[in-house]
Design a protein around this nucleic acid. Sequence first.
RNA 1: UAGGGCGUAGCCAAGCGGUAAGGCAGCGGCCUUUGGAGCCGUGAUCGGAGGUUCGAAUCCUCCCGCCCUAACCA
Length: 590
Amino acid sequence: MVKKKPHSENADGGTLHSADDAGKVAPVDFIRRIVIEDLAVGKNDGRVHTRWPPEPNGYIHIGHAKTVLLNCWIAQEFGGKFNLRFDDTNPEKESVEYVESIIEDVRWLGIDWEDRLFYASDYFEQLYQWAEELIRSGDAYICDLSPEEISERRGKAIREGDMVITPPGKESPHRDRSVEENLDLFRRMRAGEFPDGARTLRAKIDMTHPNLNMRDPVMYRILRTTHHRTGGEWSIYPTYDWTHGQSDSIEGITHSICTLEFENHRPLYDWYLDRLGIHHPQQIELARLNLSYTVLSKRKLLQLVEKGCVGNWNDPRMPTIAGLRRRGYTPEAIRDFVGRIGVTKAESTVDIALLEHCLRQDLNRSAPRVMGVLDPLKVVITNYPEGRTEELDAINNPEDERAGTRQVPFSDVLYIEREDFCEDPPKRFYRLSPGREVRLRYAYFITCTDVIKDSTGKIIELRCTYDEATRGGDSPDGRKVKATLHWVSAAHAIDAAVRLYDRLFTQENPLDVAEGGDWLDSLNPNSLQTLTNCKLEPSLGGAKPGEIYQFERKGYFCVDPDSKDGQPVFNRTVTLRDTWAKIKQKHEKR
RNA sequence: UAGGGCGUAGCCAAGCGGUAAGGCAGCGGCCUUUGGAGCCGUGAUCGGAGGUUCGAAUCCUCCCGCCCUAACCA
């Protein structure tokens, strides 16, 4: 029996529901439904034990976040356990760098595996013993065929005109070796007597099976490579199929959740466990996450890194957890996102706008507000006493009273955003323009009196007057202004570099390429724009890497680790919703 | 082609025979010392065709489309 009863039958319809953090009632997905039903019939003695099995062959991305979190949450919700296990059976592609990054990223997502961090390589000896067992029972044999020959005989697809034919498989000529010979050869494979690829251990199943995975799959290959954990101990390595189910079994996993592409492997997963007669977890497959305007495949992400399209795995444009973190994404936002996208078997591509929505929602309530001018335009307040400075009160976070207030210095020379001024304003532009009055946030109403240009006609300075009576930003006479601008006092400003990031691809589905094209063709050439002359309010002087601020009216910005003392570098995490940009865009299209 | 899956609004996704939840995006409006946030309003007959039924997105049949596998990768 389960102590807690987080899921219950709905009184009116029999629909299963679960309560989330906010106490709202959320429908239960098909996986949780299976778990609930298993619990109801007393399967696994009422235990729920999940695991997440990454291969350490790259950095994990937001798609992985979906499956780790799902596994972790299911364990939590049903009072079960969750393991983190590295599926490290291919030493050629794996490394400790990847192991370490994955551990860091999974932990950052807020996942706790307690003391259950495992490696498939922990089970190599047991796996080997089980392999000998299958040899003895006549269920496995040593095959001397080359990869090409094996593929050929397994029933490689053949093209006949427009038709693709999958012929039945042909048995290996080595299929009927004696147990003794098989055992001898297998031991010599282990001892390193044969060159890489010379032989394999294969399961003896059925070469005519309609599921190609059941046509005598390879269990072991000779690979005399150093493994990041077992070093030179092994000359043979088990394949994924031979490793995965048994690793689950050893750990007492009850529900082995994986992505759809492994659905075809399930019969084999079951076959091995049944032959061995050991604890048999249930494999359940769900659709992997796809996100618009990006790619979620370690292989593709590796290419972006290797070809120099991005700085590294943790480039803020990457959908990797490390990249998102550096960009300024929070674990909360990612968890919220994962909780919203659902769990199904339907192939889907989630709009990246939903991820950004989750981010904004989290940052809106947590990020302190500051003022920063990205593209400064000098403003001189002609009627403000030269050399005078006053401190004005500013609210740190209107969404959170506890965040308090701070003081911002004001003086006669300021910077405002260049795009907040327009000499000849179009219809719905209601920021500053000649003769017009606007509010400087938390400061005064100002009116533009003069526009000063250089010899090329470029505006280099504005002259304005201020209304002393509007200190703090309200006019005693009740007159209104249509716009409020952010600003920074020139004498007090600190200089900063700001990196403006945009989506990495211009195409909604980068993998949808035209004939003769390449998926890299839709890389966004403007995915990174660096500004070096930004002016920030002085309170940002001590900002530390990783901190996230809202630059009022501009967006959220995260301090990059590249920052040096007195030379902060900010990454734009995401812009604020910008209705003016939409209006402008519509006008320009006309 | 074989085998395995999937198909509910632009994008996710509830629904499990009783007459289409919710979120994101979009659009319109209210409010506003961030054109931010917030608030209100706004869209579908369920891939198609038949059938069963008083009644079907939900059951049956056929058809169509998309995805996966055809690695000594995972």
